[in-house]
Amino acid sequence: MITTALHITIAMVTLAAVLNVFRLIKGPDAPDRVLALDTLYVNAIALIILLGITLGTRLYMESALLIAVMGFVGTVAMAKYLKRGSVIE
């Protein structure tokens, strides 16, 4: 029961990641690409958590937390670069 649901969910999140990559490649503007990357890292967190449930281990939680922190910093840095032309003034 849970295994089936887990497999379907992993398929859905993977498809979502593929769609994000499509937007990342297509653009058309730089903010679109930043938005696609931002969504992509959130999807990566979801995939890592699903992997953790599948394998029955808690080891991957720390990496998901790190991706959450670093992804946010990356998004802000890229958006700030687009707006100002520099990250740290």
Partner: peptide
């Protein structure tokens, strides 16, 4: 998650 990506 999928709907968010479709919207994107």
């Amino acid at each position: 998650t999928l709907i968010g990506a479709i919207g994107l």
